[in-house]
């Protein structure tokens, strides 16, 4: 029978393999989508592959900036853009900060990320409040904010708020939590800490995983496609 650390390293291997496979699969899809047909046919007017390397590099750079800076959203709704951008960045930083709970030993960089994540933890619920205000009060009509989105935003807001509460007000035993999380990752569960705030935080995290929007993985790929489409679009009659 393998011990906990072996299980943990095996689980990590599976995770890393899975992510690598995912990236390769996406790369394969991108290759296909470059030639794949719209409605089952190829589309000559759509020129996915720029000929020169400089052009390709420019498209890629633009696509990366689109993804990182949400430039398409900036173009259509500036008020919402700032909230969404701050939310996504702070959420990513908070997640990175949580790496310390699934790694043993904890690398120095993760400790530094944890420190940044601590500050991002404040910003996260505030950015969500801002998004709610922009959506429901300032920006256009409230009905344009779907119930689905409202629930998702609420779940993340409570997640963020409970995180801040645990850090500054009710301090559950971090050692117990880490012990539990490492056990789960190694398929060798340890007792679940019963601190009520942690339990709420943890349950909401599981709920979030259940309802994790598919756009998190797909939207960046679509953004690359869209940038490629925009940058290689040749108006009728303007072909070389």
């Amino acid at each position: 029978m393998a011990d906990g650390s072996t299980c943990y390293s095996k689980a990590m291997e599976i995770l890393v393999t899975g992510i690598t496979y995912g990236i390769l699969a996406v790369a394969y899809w991108r290759g296909i989508s470059a030639i794949v047909l719209v409605c089952g046919h190829s589309e000559p007017h759509y020129r996915p592959l720029a000929k020169s390397r400089v052009k390709k590099a420019k498209i890629l750079l633009n696509a990366i900036l689109d993804i990182i800076l949400f430039r398409r959203l900036l173009r259509v709704n500036r008020a919402l853009w700032i909230g969404e951008w701050v939310f996504h960045v702070s959420f990513a930083l908070v997640l990175l900060g949580h790496l310390r709970y699934i790694m043993q030993p904890v690398p120095g960089i993760v400790m530094e990320l944890n420190c940044i994540g601590k500050h991002a933890g404040y910003v996260l619920p505030l950015s969500l409040l801002y998004i709610l205000i922009v959506r429901l009060v300032i920006s256009e009509k409230g009905e344009y904010f779907s119930v689905r989105n409202l629930v998702l935003v609420s779940v993340i807001f409570i997640l963020g708020a409970t995180g801040v509460i645990m850090r500054y007000f009710v301090r559950p035993d971090v050692i117990d939590i880490k012990h539990y999380v490492l056990g789960v990752l190694a398929f060798d569960p340890n007792p679940l800490p019963l601190d009520p705030v942690f339990l709420l935080h943890y349950i909401l995290f599981l709920v979030l995983l259940l309802f994790l929007p598919s756009h998190i993985l797909a939207a960046p790929i679509v953004m690359i496609e869209a940038r490629e489409r925009d940058d290689t679009f040749v108006p009728l009659g303007h072909e070389e």
Binding site: V76, P213, H215, A219, M223
Partner: peptide
């Protein structure tokens, strides 16, 4: 899959 339901 990529629609974020932002409703813009």
């Amino acid at each position: 899959k990529g629609c974020t339901d932002c409703r813009e």
